[in-house]
Design a protein around this nucleic acid. Structure first.
Lengths: 221, 221
DNA sequence: ACCAGACTTAAGCACTTCGTAAGCGGATGA
DNA sequence: TCATCCGCTTACGAAGTGCTTAAGTCTGGT
């Protein structure tokens, strides 16, 4: 899951990035509105965390401009506590949600989950696909009723595949979500990850679609 | 345990926040009804202390609106008005409890414990998990029949883990409940806390789930 | 204001997880 | 059929995560 964070405050930005990465999100932290707009235009991110009041280009302008360009990526706006007007204007400008600073990171996480889930058209906090079950709240995974211990990366991969169960997920999508835009270097990291995940589940839960990517069937046994 | 306090009176608000923090609750103090509704919406808090008669939006409206949005967080209403009408309307609107000002902080503490207990689905004032027993009223903990002296922080951590015994509790959940917003900095405070707690109990009561958080099994020995 | 206990921070260490690279094997297409 | 490509597997070094200890800071009680 790839998140673009637009925030000019070094401390807060670093803190948020840290927190999100701890949740196994991939974060591209941008400090400048102009950069943000460029990144948004590509629609490669799953979510944008946008601070209003940026140098270079105002956060609200970025949002308006992006929506004008038909960028549909969910945007979560962050505003200062006393800027009530900003929040209203933010929503009018096309933000999907807003968060008032200061906020609990737990809350941020919950909203991010809520937004990305909404974007996927899912409702529950648990995803099931056949014998696979994944709890987003507690990060617990079970397969055929047995609890399975996964690492963060493995969990992140499995989550993406399960959210799109029954549909092919392209290799480059997975790589973007897991490693961000920067880390697109040539390596077999994804294949290794798939391998360890298969070993922990079973070798036929994740199907390879040669030349394209991977897929978890809607009803794996 | 994270409590949202909605109170516009500076003196009273500060006094309550102080008192609750002394009880090792994490308190988010909001002065405005609109803000309160936003905070309520995500159900991130364990309890809401709601003052009726707020600026911006009446406390009762906040409550009604929150319940309409299926927010299930327990709400404890505070009001200066002693009229029976208000009482009934408050409870009808979805409040779980009601406190008439002025009140003693001890009573407030007791009611908070009662409510959080109820929300947790616990009948008694005690939580048990295997050889562990925790009394919410007296804050006493025993392990294998022996009384164990815990500090407030240790108790708070143990309480969260025991309320969710058998389920993984994410690290960020713990940090937010224990430290609130301030803990955006990187530190190993939680790890140290876990360590001291393990030393006082035993080293295998609290299980580490690497990369995610901690867990107390439902039947630790 | 002082003291003791509680709490946070920081640093070193052990262990786990992750990305890289290299070799291998099966699939693909001429 | 052969050459090529793509993905699988394995091993290893680097980075990350959590444990532990110790020192510094904060807090409440006297």
């Amino acid at each position: 899951m790839h998140i673009i964070l637009v925030e000019d405050d070094p401390q807060l930005g670093a803190a948020i990035q840290r927190a999100l990465e701890r949740l196994a999100y991939t974060v591209s932290w941008l400090r400048d509105g102009r950069e943000a707009l460029l990144a948004l235009r590509d629609q490669t991110a799953d979510l944008v965390l946008l601070d209003l009041g940026l140098p270079g280009k105002d956060g609200l302008d970025v949002l308006v401009e992006a929506r004008r360009l038909h960028v549909k990526t969910p945007v979560l706006v962050m505003t200062a506590r006393d800027a009530l007007d900003d929040r209203v204007r933010g929503l009018d400008a096309g933000a999907d949600d807003y968060l008032v600073k200061p906020f609990h990171l737990e809350e941020l996480g919950a909203r991010i989950r809520s937004l990305t889930r909404r974007a996927q058209g899912l409702a529950a906090n648990r995803i099931d696909a056949g014998a696979l079950s994944l709890d987003l709240g507690t990060s617990e995974v079970s397969f055929r009723g047995e609890r399975v211990e996964l690492t963060k990366r493995e969990f992140a991969l499995l989550q993406i595949l399960m959210e799109r169960a029954g549909r092919l997920v392209r290799r480059e999508n997975l790589e973007n979500s897991l490693y961000g835009l920067d880390n697109m270097v040539g390596s077999s990291a994804l294949e290794v990850l798939v391998h360890t995940l298969r070993r922990k589940l079973s070798y036929d839960t994740i199907q390879t679609v040669r030349g394209f990517g991977y897929m978890i069937p809607r009803e794996p046994q």
